[in-house]
Design a protein around this nucleic acid. Structure first.
Lengths: 241, 241
DNA sequence: TAAACTTCGCGTTAATTTTACACAAAATTA
DNA sequence: TAATTTTGTGTAAAATTAACGCGAAGTTTA
């Protein structure tokens, strides 16, 4: 651990953090990963102890290649969830002068999309918890605001990128996919038009899978055709919803 | 001036800057405002002396309310151009560990759109210069990259916001507006379809203006109907191009 | 001064995309 | 076995987008 008062500068410098909004989808609703702020670390200076917050932490000036590396590293440390730098998207910077009561801290918010079914086991249940977007508690710092902005960013991105496929499990059904889109965009689509449009893009591949499903009629299973998507993207095509 | 080594922290802090990509349009081509890096200020530590760069500078930890305030303040100081915080849009954070040779500096890039005809007189010609996007020189630091990213961001934004009207003079013609869209998007539109679409939005108002124009036939003059645009936006409408 | 040329505005038609909507099959429940 | 829920499929109307012809206004050229 570094000694106190070791680092001096000619001009004041702010502290810089990266925060993570990790979205997951369980087939029913959109969820977000939060941590409970503990007093373990720097007890005396830690703020908002016991409150829920977004995972995140300070830029390691000497080691973190970019602030996105900070995001990935802190997410791993705080929740156990290991994501690659490429899995993150930058949302925005939050730099209000009083956003942290201790000192001037600016944060670069990121978001990531994960297949909840794949990672739920990885997340350290002692520290982190998945909350449905519908009942997110009030958060520490300005994290409420960050979450709102991240959501609206996700809503924008979904129009141009197949974000659904990052959130869905490998094998999924059209009704599930539609439900996800409806959850994120908070609208309802016509089932038939949704299916037509999705199939029309040519990114869905039918899969043999006889796992019985809960519902009534058994829907067809699909997987995302990543190669074809990459080909289409290279050609310059537009998703749109 | 502050004494050296006055500000001390328990952990290393990066320096934080805000950089500005200011776009202007002169009726012909898209331009960007650059400054020539001088050795005036902190001579010994200044890097890239004599090279062209984006306007920008260090966050004033004690005074700047947000990094966007930094952007506005520095733009004014370095180019004479006075813009409001609302005129800026955040683009992205650039935080590569070696992007500044002197110390770790992360920068939050912003862009702004201005009516070149209105502000050309305000820009301090000694320090700043407007460059056509077609012949931008190679820039200091990673500013080439920042400019590229800002451009692609502008190209995205133009699909959903009437950015044209921030760049055009108060009174303009449809061919001018079309030229701007074509410059930014690097495509060609059909003159008649472009006009139909634009008029269909209901944001254009015909204006009486008999200033003779250079070309052949004198095109109709318009102005942007801001009130109507706000009304439409409130109702939730989409631009799209 | 007339002819040729360029730029501009208007409107029409064809192609494409989006929207609205009805019915039958599969599985569960009563 | 009948009723109920969920899913899959197709088609016609409506709206939007794309393609395009023409004549008018002004400039340049012969």
């Amino acid at each position: 651990m570094a000694k106190k008062g070791q680092y001096t500068y000619e001009y004041p410098h702010p502290a810089v953090t990266a925060d993570c909004v990790v979205f997951g989808y369980d087939g029913k609703e959109l969820k977000v990963l939060l941590i409970k702020r503990g007093a373990e670390k720097e007890a005396s200076t830690t703020a908002y102890v016991g409150e829920w917050a977004l995972p995140g932490g300070f830029l390691d000036v000497e080691r973190d290649k970019t602030v996105t590396h900070t995001a990935a590293r802190e997410l791993k440390e705080e929740t156990g969830l290991k994501l690659g730098v490429k899995d993150f998207k930058e949302v925005a910077t939050f730099s209000d002068i009083k956003r942290d009561p201790r000192e001037r801290v600016i944060t670069i918010a990121h978001y990531a999309l994960v297949k909840l079914s794949d990672v739920q086991a990885d997340t350290d249940a002692d520290k982190a918890e998945w909350f449905s977007m519908k009942d997110v508690p009030s958060l520490a710092f300005d994290h409420d605001k960050i979450l709102r902005v991240a959501c609206s960013r996700l809503r924008q991105d979904i129009h141009f990128e197949p974000v659904g496929f990052d959130l869905m499990p490998e094998i999924f059904t059209l009704p599930q996919l539609q439900n996800l889109y409806e959850s994120i965009l908070e609208v309802k689509f016509d089932r038939r038009n949704f299916a037509n449009k999705m199939k029309h893009f040519g990114m869905l591949v039918e899969v043999e899978d006889d796992t019985p499903r809960h519902g009534t009629r058994t829907p067809i299973k699909y997987r995302f055709d990543k190669e074809n998507y990459e080909r289409l993207k290279a050609k310059g095509f537009q998703l749109e919803f």
